[in-house]
Simulated scan of single mutants.
Amino acid sequence: MHYTSLSEMIASETTTLAKGPLAIVMIEDDVEVATTLRHHQQMGFTAVIALMPAVFDLPRDLAETVIRVDYNMSDEEAMETAINSLMDPMAGQWVYYCYNAEYFFFPFCETRNVIEMLAFHTEERRDAMLSYVIDLYSDNLVDHPNAVSLDNAHMDRSGYYALARPDLDNHGHPKERQLDFYGGLRWRYEEHVPQIRRKIDRIPLFRAKKGLKIRWDHTFSDEEYNTYACPWHHNITGAICSFRTAKALKSNPGSKFEIETFKWHNSSPFEWHSRQLLDLGLMEPGQWF
């Protein structure tokens, strides 16, 4: 189904928006659009919504199975506007969001779908799920000048760390069960990344509710949504394996010609499997076995 505006889709798809889990893919350019959409369909989401420029084409199978909405992701506050516009219509449902050339993984996702995982997460009285954005990049920028290659994808196997998240409304004291996570290309090439854009933590999977708002830094107005775990034990976390930062570094004039390769001694080929991410400590199963 193809809609020319977000408001038209909301008015027409009330039944769809009331049955989750839903995936929203925000498409900024024409890189790996089809693979991103298919990946999240295969995860088990009941519907995949693509917010994308009207000029882009979709393969026939996706045009018939994805809810497409004409949307300009280059507009100011495009992400927040889209998610917050959908928040009330989706209230009560689990919602996931990402950008194109980003791929969601959770523990054991090769043999279990997202509905099974969320059933357990819900039993643990959690309404949100922390994930880390793990940068992917091609090992050969001559053959892949935009840094994107699914067959030659690499990732950093180390260099990740966390700092306490200060509560500016409480004299800068650390927030309870909240941390700021860093690493990957944003850490290695921090001179090209504004400080406020260096975090790699995101709450991409959450239960929508009326009045809830997402902010520009991927945190929510309800502080409990921003926590990495409940008070009594660790919970499931996920990973978003993303070419987005590599693409940006190789397209921005300030960094494009200064980076000849993203590979370093801590680069590893990405295996496209949750086991690799679990072994590296980049997500955890919590109490889910």
Rank of each mutant, 00 (worst) to 15 (best):
V142G: 05
V142W: 04
V142C: 03
D143K: 13
D143M: 13
P145V: 06
P145E: 07
S149N: 14
S149W: 06
L150S: 06
N152K: 09
H154W: 01
D156L: 10
R157T: 05
S158P: 04
G159M: 11
G159F: 08
G159P: 11
Y160V: 09
Y160W: 11
Y161H: 15
A162Q: 09
A162G: 02
P166T: 11
D167R: 08
D167T: 07
D169W: 01
D169R: 06
P174N: 08
P174D: 08
K175G: 02
E176Q: 09
R177L: 06
L179K: 15
L179Q: 14
D180A: 13
Y182T: 10
Y182G: 07
Y182N: 03
L185F: 06
R186Q: 11
Y189T: 03
E190R: 15
E190C: 09
H192L: 08
P194N: 11
P194T: 07
Q195W: 04
I196F: 02
R197H: 02
R198A: 04
D201L: 08
L205K: 02
F206L: 11
F206C: 03
R207Q: 14
A208T: 07
A208S: 14
K209A: 14
K210F: 08
G211N: 13
L212N: 09
K213M: 14
K213D: 11
I214Y: 05
D217M: 07
D217F: 12
T219K: 12
F220C: 03
D222T: 10
E223N: 14
Y225E: 08
T227G: 00
Y228D: 11
C230A: 04
C230Q: 01
P231I: 00
P231W: 00
P231S: 00
W232I: 11
W232P: 01
W232F: 12
H233Y: 09
H234S: 06
H234M: 04
N235F: 00
I236W: 02
T237E: 02
G238I: 04
A239F: 03
I240S: 03
S242T: 12
A248D: 06
L249G: 01
K250M: 13
N252P: 01
G254Y: 04
G254S: 03
S255G: 12
S255R: 07
K256A: 11
F257T: 08
F257D: 14
F257C: 00
F257N: 12
F257M: 05
E258P: 00
E258H: 06
E258A: 12
I259A: 04
I259P: 03
E260R: 13
E260C: 10
E260S: 15
E260H: 14
T261D: 07
F262E: 02
F262S: 05
H265E: 15
H265K: 15
N266W: 01
N266R: 10
S267L: 07
P269G: 11
E271T: 09
E271V: 00
L277W: 13
L277H: 13
L278S: 12
L280Y: 15
L280K: 15
G281C: 07
G281I: 05
G281E: 11
G281T: 07
G281D: 11
G281H: 07
M283H: 05
P285V: 02
G286F: 10
G286H: 12
